[in-house]
Design a protein around this nucleic acid. Structure first.
Lengths: 206, 206
DNA sequence: GAAGTAAACTACACCGTGCAGTTTAGTTCG
DNA sequence: CGAACTAAACTGCACGGTGTAGTTTACTTC
């Protein structure tokens, strides 16, 4: 990595910290350059404006989400295992402090600015895997989710309700152990509602 | 209502709109006074600073939440009906555009500022009704929620996942009809997991 | 000579205050 | 009743001090 790339990385890190603490409007380009141990002019050599710098950081978040959600559907796996694996695709992000820190910052801005929210949404290209999963599993008789989109959103809602949303407020990040429990409990509830033919075997598996 | 009170109300309304659109740091006291059709000096006669004005608005939100959650436990009602009623205590808030608008604004600030988040939390005195409900219903054999706090948070999570959190981003407010469905679906899933003795009667009631 | 630095500089916007003068509501008195 | 008075609130404007985004300039390092 060249010196210039190194500086750019420092700037991005500093900007994340500054935007996180103060928000877009409250962040100062002077402080960002200080935190990056870089002259202000160097910041402007790499990013033509505060807005461009902010957008670049947003793209980092979208990239993280998209790559985390590249999860393939395994028809051979038992539905319970497949759901746990699907849950972990999201869960893995939420136990990652770097991701959560970024997510908090971006979210507090998107809440206020619908245009920015739409822009971010358009960057999240992989969200559909959850609905596709429900649809396919139902087609194969493993679930009874007649409304796959609803089921997907309920599944995500259960997980997020115990990790993402509380974290967003407290700043505390869920541990891997806690996430295991959250996913177990979410899958339990989800299968209680949508599991096909609740046989003795399914119950015993709990 | 006196003229002075009327002006104060105008200021609060204008401030909500301004804070909502621009955030705390981005909001301008000059613009707030313009939006309220009031001189800037009048704003400062009612509120000694931007911060005081902001806090006053936060208190409005806390008041709305606390009064909405004053819901009593009815031991005579079937558990399903009681859950629906409990869900509506929260749901009623979320189909209210005024509440949602305020909630969005406050949330985007509390996300960034943990101290403010803690301050707001301390003002929400009635959140415990959900856990108390689960605890009591389990004691009376109507539910099997061995961890009442978890069950309460799952119940709320299911409802919020389909109204509050999507609304926060899109700005679109859930209709009463949609909320009926959300609460039905949430109670369905909740009872599938925690309903005591799933008898033929319980199933038929769906 | 390409990239970085430090510091000063421009051109604003913003918070909060001060103040001279006006409006409003209510009360007293003829 | 209605005119005169009073106290409080409101207006509009200007101002000090501060902070900001982004630019420029002169200098340094590799």
């Amino acid at each position: 990595m060249s010196v210039s790339d190194q500086k750019k990385k420092q700037i991005v890190q500093a900007a994340i910290a500054e935007f996180q603490e103060k928000g877009y409007a409250g962040a100062s380009m002077d402080r960002i350059s200080e935190r990056a141990h870089v002259s202000k002019r160097t910041v402007y050599n790499h990013f033509e404006s505060k807005d461009v710098l902010f957008k670049e950081i947003n793209q980092c978040l979208a990239d993280q989400i998209n790559s985390a959600l590249e999860v393939s559907y395994d028809p051979a796996a038992p539905i319970r295992d497949a759901l746990v694996r699907l849950g972990w695709a999201e869960g893995e992000l939420m136990i990652n402090p770097c991701f959560m820190s970024l997510a908090r910052m971006v979210m507090s801005e998107t809440i206020r600015d619908p245009a920015l929210a739409a822009d971010m949404d358009s960057r999240m290209t992989k969200i559909s895997v959850f609905t596709e999963f429900m649809e396919r599993a139902t087609r194969e008789g493993k679930l009874t989710a007649t409304d796959p989109a609803l089921a997907a959103s309920q599944f995500l809602g259960l997980i997020k309700a115990h990790s993402f949303y509380p974290n967003i407020h407290s700043g505390r990040v869920t541990t891997r152990l806690e996430m295991e429990r959250i996913i177990e409990e979410s899958v339990d509830m989800f299968l209680a509602r949508y599991g096909a033919k609740p046989t003795a075997q399914t119950v015993a598996a709990r």
